[in-house]
């Protein structure tokens, strides 16, 4: 009937005034993320600080977006000299974590990495002595 639905609608919106709001007060209150959340990548290290990565290159080849770039140590091919993640290209798909035979990679709950420069999104999980250029981002063109 005419008007009844309108009144009902008004009633529904009015009820919401009394209920608690749904707003997430994000910068003031950190959201609680489930443990499975896929945010920025990190690597496990043992007690001595040695990274768990064995430089097998599986993740580098498995990543669909050429995010990961690993440089092997020339003397010791089982040790990564540097492990660069160009997270600006990362789709957080989780393939690298899933593929790693040594379970060296994992996702953290850290999602607050907004930067002003794209280049700031490139970070290293393993940083050897040799200064390396930027990751794959360079090669795939800015």
């Amino acid at each position: 009937m005419f008007g009844q639905g309108l009144l009902k609608g008004l009633g529904i919106t009015f009820q919401r005034l009394r209920r608690p709001t749904e707003t997430q007060l994000y910068p003031y209150q950190q959201p609680v993320l489930p443990a499975t959340s896929r945010m920025f990548l990190a690597m496990y290290h043992d007690e001595a600080g040695v990274p768990a990565c064995k430089a097998c290159m599986t993740c580098q080849t498995g990543c669909p977006d050429h995010v990961i770039r690993i440089e092997k140590d020339t003397e010791n091919p089982k040790v990564p000299l540097s492990f660069t993640v160009n997270s600006g290209r990362c789709t957080f798909c989780g393939i690298c974590v899933e593929l790693c035979p040594f379970s060296a990679l994992h996702f953290t709950g850290d999602f607050e990495r907004a930067t002003y420069l794209k280049s700031d999104l490139i970070y290293k999980l393993v940083d050897g002595s040799r200064a390396t250029g930027e990751g794959e981002g360079e090669r795939h063109g800015r």
Binding site: L33, P34, T36, S37, R38, T91, F92, C93, G94, I95, F107
Partner: peptide, 15 residues
Amino acid sequence: YDFFEAVTGARMMYN
């Protein structure tokens, strides 16, 4: 989406 995130780890791009 909370349910999705708890299972798959992402809110939109589940993979």
